[in-house]
Structures are given as C-alpha cells and as structure tokens.
C-alpha cells in the first residue's frame, strides 16, 4: 500500500538509485583492479567525454566570466574599488562557477549521451550479449566512462576557468576601462593554488557522479524507446541535483580542511 503514497514512492526510488549507484561504484573500483578494456575503447571515451565537450564548456566559461565582470563592476563602482572586480571574477570562477557550471553542462551533454548509449544497448540485448561473451559490462562500459569523466572534467573546468577569467578581463580592461596593472595584480594576489586545486577536486567528484549515475540509469533502462528517453531525462536531472547537493558538502569539507580558505 505504501507504493500508493507519492512521497514514499519517490523516497523509495531515491534510496534505490543511491544504493544502485553505490554498488556500481564498488563494482567499478573492483573492475579497475582487473584487466582494463582495450586502449581504443578508453581513448574513444576520453575523446567523446573530453574533447567533444570542449566547445560547450568553453562557451559556458567565457560568457559566465563576462557576465560576472559586468554585474560585479556595477556593484563595485559604487564603492570605487573596480580594480578588485577581476579578482572577484577569478576567485568565483575557480572556486564555484567553473566547477559547478561545467559540471551541469557536462551532466546535460555527457550524462544524456552515456545513458542513451548504454540504455539502447540494454534494450537491444547488447549488454546481455556482452555478458554472454563472458565480459563484465561494468568493466567494458562503465569503467572507461568513469575514468574519462573523472580525469577530463577537471581539465575542462580549468579551461572554463581560464576563458572565464580572460573573458572577464577583456570586458573589464577593454570596455569598462579598469586599469590593467591593478586588475592583474589583484587577480594574482587573490587567486590561490589551493582554490584551483579545490575546484579541480570538486569537478572530479562531479565527473564521477555524472558517469556513475548515467551508467546506472542506462544499465537499468526500461524496455522501449520511451524507456531510453525516460532514463536519459532521469540521469540528467539526478546528476544536476547531485552536483548541487554534493557541491555544498564538498565546500564544507574543504573549508574544514583549510578554514582560512573558507573565509
């Protein structure tokens, strides 16, 4: 009777997905200690998840940096410290906006693609065929995607940070006439290696979440085209929500490691 109550049904579904994703993580870690898939399979995923996501991530980073520069400039002009705007843009991009926005964009682009591909393989019995050919689908399908996402997401995030800062600087110095020397000096003063490292660590976690959630949804797709569509939608929504929730906890955890950074 509990299934008739929508709240209970949703909670059951959340716990089932969380449990399934956790078990998939364990299975993926175990597969990582065994024989890895062929190099070509790995390279394909690095290409698809990393290289092919570059335009969307760069566009996101560039325009986020530029918008942030314009918005912050208008606020900082009131207190006459416009030379600090570049530092605000840099720190915001590296700490939060770069990792989170890149993560959200990748959840949409990569997450949907992973679920649709694995989901289609599930409903057309290709996953069963892998098992019938004595091959672990987690090793063959999930491990390369998880590795590619974990390693490529921070690289893409760094690229987004960089173009965001460059775009912001271009707007501030080129159009809003902020003095280059002060802008540059403040930016370097405020931007810390620790901030960049934390941003990269966060984005690696986001990559892991995207690949695991999307693979799990793909492997558990319901039959039919509608099933694949539903699974892809669920994968994107769940990944986005998990990125935002985990961002909070990761921020708190890193703040606990180095409290002065949090201030």
């Amino acid at each position: 009777m509990t299934s008739a109550i929508p709240g209970v049904q949703a909670l059951t579904s959340i716990f089932r997905t969380a449990g399934g994703v956790f078990l998939l993580l364990l299975e993926t870690v175990r597969a990582a200690f065994g024989r890895w898939p062929r190099r070509r399979v790995m390279v394909d995923q690095f290409y698809l998840i990393g290289y092919r996501s570059t335009p969307v991530v760069l566009t996101t980073g560039l325009f986020t940096g530029m918008v942030l520069a314009v918005q912050s400039f208008n606020q900082f002009r009131r207190v006459n410290i416009t030379s600090m705007v570049g530092a605000v843009v840099g720190v915001s991009m590296v700490k939060e906006l770069g990792p989170v926005l890149s993560g959200l964009m990748l959840a949409g682009r990569v997450g949907a693609a992973i679920t649709a591909e694995i989901g289609t393989m599930s409903v057309t019995e290709q996953v069963d065929a892998l098992r019938a050919l004595a091959t672990n689908p987690v090793r063959w399908l999930v491990l390369p995607r998880v590795l590619a996402a974990v390693l490529m997401t921070p690289i893409l995030t760094l690229m987004a940070d960089l173009v965001g800062i460059v775009g912001g600087s271009f707007i501030l110095v080129g159009f809003l006439k902020v003095e280059w020397h002060f802008h540059y000096t403040n930016l370097l003063d405020w931007l810390k290696v620790w901030d960049v490292s934390v941003g990269c660590a966060k984005s690696s976690c986001f990559g892991l979440l995207i690949a695991l959630i999307s693979s799990y949804k793909g492997l558990n797709t319901e039959p039919g085209a509608a099933g694949v569509g539903k699974a892809a939608t669920e994968a994107v929504v769940t990944s986005c929500i998990m990125i935002l929730i985990s961002d909070f906890f990761l921020t708190v955890a890193f703040a606990a490691i180095k409290p002065d950074w949090a201030n």
Binding site: T124, E125, Q126, D128, A129
Partner: peptide, 9 residues
C-alpha cells in the same frame, strides 16, 4: 548465443 535481434555491437 544467437540473440533474437542479433544484438551485434
């Protein structure tokens, strides 16, 4: 095993 819909990769 030969699957119903071939299940080629």
């Amino acid at each position: 095993m030969l699957f119903q819909a071939a299940a080629l990769f």
